[in-house]
Amino acid sequence: MTDMTAHDTPYEASMGDYFALLKPRVMSLVIFTALVGLLVAPVPVHPFIGFVGVLCIAVGAGASGALNMWWDADIDAVMKRTAKRPIPSGRVQPGEALGIGMALSGFSVVLLALATNMLAAGLLAFTIFFYAVVYSMWLKRSTPHNIVIGGAAGAFPPMVGWAVATGSVSIESFLMFALIFMWTPPHFWALALFVKSDYGDAGVPMLTETHGRDTTRRHVIAYAVLLVPVAIGLGFTSIGGPIYLTVSVLLNLWFVKGAYDIWRRDDAAADADNYAVEKHVFKISLFYLFLHFGALLAEAALRPYGYGGW
């Protein structure tokens, strides 16, 4: 019997294949920012409730990743970067991804509502809806500004984390949202400039291809400058402080200088040094976000000892 089935046995998806549907690398950023949102909030949370809260946010983000892979399987199959994802490579059936995405969405939202509060659960539900429907189904294939508005989905986690602790939305959580929201476009477009993408083959409008690379360079500097007041402004709220403000001023100078360098040159110059500046600014952008949230965490950690905050 085994001889007969050895040839035509379909590939059996492993747990690892299902886990890959949840986009674990995106999830790690979501966990970090949600945790910071939760820990910097002025209301203490029981550690286990906090753990469940962050777990639900992470699972919710994973669920929206699975829904995105279900919807975008046709695009993913065309592009080199994504062709090895579980659905285009045939390891997971599209229906399975849809089922897992829907089930985990419901699970994470309901558990978050029961463990914490309705506002946090509502915000998580909206985040999943925003990423799966507004970004994946609607904007991604229709406008080159897809990354701008779609970035909102990645910006919600600290706001949800804050809502887990406080049960409310405030200027602090709004500015944490705005920080990631405004940071996403220059971060992504710096990458788009040096990565040879095949979005065009997949029919996805990207700014570099619809409006040209010079326009993209102008957009990088514009968003980097617009990001400055948001990042600095957060320093003057109740969760900011001298440490955050110092870190933020230095990082913003570094990032705007990098964006300026991107804007000042053209593709001929970039080709000559193999996109060194664009790659450098992309790296800065990673430090930028990590250190801003790290500084918020440092302020919160030092506050009990009389050092953090204003």
């Binding site: 019997m1 085994t2 089935t5 046995t9 059996e12 998806a13 492993s14 747990m15």
Partner: peptide
Amino acid sequence: HEIHERRKGRNFG
């Protein structure tokens, strides 16, 4: 059945 062996990892998961 061979499916028990094939799906062992998944079932334990």
